[in-house]
Write a protein that binds this DNA or RNA. Structure first.
Lengths: 145, 145
DNA sequence: GTGTTTCACTTGCATAATGCAAGTGAAAAA
DNA sequence: TTTTTCACTTGCATTATGCAAGTGAAACAC
């Protein structure tokens, strides 16, 4: 049951191919960004993605990320209608990937969010550790529910 | 002229968004993998991608990667029909991104290419430096043509 | 010089994915 | 009870992907 998605049919055994089959689309990556950097947790928050995501695409991606074990979902204890989406350990392990992508773009393209970029350049590992700490705190808080 | 693609219309100023607009599709990433890790340089070599890419998709992606300044193309001096595609400095700067993606997949999925993964785990920075050296050597060789 | 092969596509078409916007049903609030 | 909020679902148009045949130019073989 928990191993539902563990034996998918892949186009090759290459590790990068496994990555891109799960992440090789921009919406998944943008969702993960908002979870990691902005603490987004609800459907409505994801709908507010700055880039503008369609409801059917959001639903589809959340389902996929869940199936891949990258995120998990639970009801909000303070509002039975709301769902809370959380990164799993597998999900938070994507922090270095997203960090490197941000740094790459910042080096080669005109982009915003300069404070974050400065921080990443100054102490990449420290920022990743910080993201992990916030995630761990979220885990502890939701385990208490 | 060389700045042709520098002012694209982006859905947001976020650096990650810039990354995913250029890389947020699996074929581009797989092409880059083969360039970086296997030294693939020709259309025919890319057609041999283990995952199987269609000619029209390959052509499209090569054009896009070129437009984004990630790769460059020149004729093969030994065969006027052949084109040689090479990573640019911007392209080789994606090595840490791909490396982190490989490591992530290796940690959480059953994948092949264990020797490469062992090497990455042992000395990530060393491997990236090695990829860069091979690229620099390719640059020197093609500048001599 | 002619015919054949190789190279990098291009094309036509079917299928799949994306995106817009209206609609839906259930839970919570008023 | 009615209204609002939540997380979708749906219908349909547009765009992207994928298969496989086709194309034109350069290089090779004779």
């Amino acid at each position: 049951m928990t191993k539902r998605g563990t034996n998918p049919v892949r186009r090759s055994p290459c590790p990068l191919n496994a990555s891109v089959e799960m992440l090789g689309d921009r919406w998944s990556l943008l969702i993960l960004r908002d979870m990691m950097l902005r603490g987004a947790q609800t459907y409505k928050q994801f709908l507010g993605l700055y880039e503008g995501i369609a409801t059917n695409i959001l639903t589809d991606r959340l389902r996929k990320l869940q199936a891949y074990g990258i995120i998990t979902v639970r009801p909000d204890p303070s509002d039975g209608r709301k769902l809370i989406y959380l990164l799993t350990a597998k999900g938070i392990d994507l922090a270095p990937v997203l960090t490197e992508m941000v740094l790459w773009a910042a080096r080669h393209e005109k982009t915003g969010n300069q404070p974050l970029i400065q921080q990443m350049r100054k102490d990449k590992e420290g920022l990743i550790a910080q993201v992990r700490q916030r995630w761990a705190a979220t885990q502890a808080a939701s385990a208490a529910d």
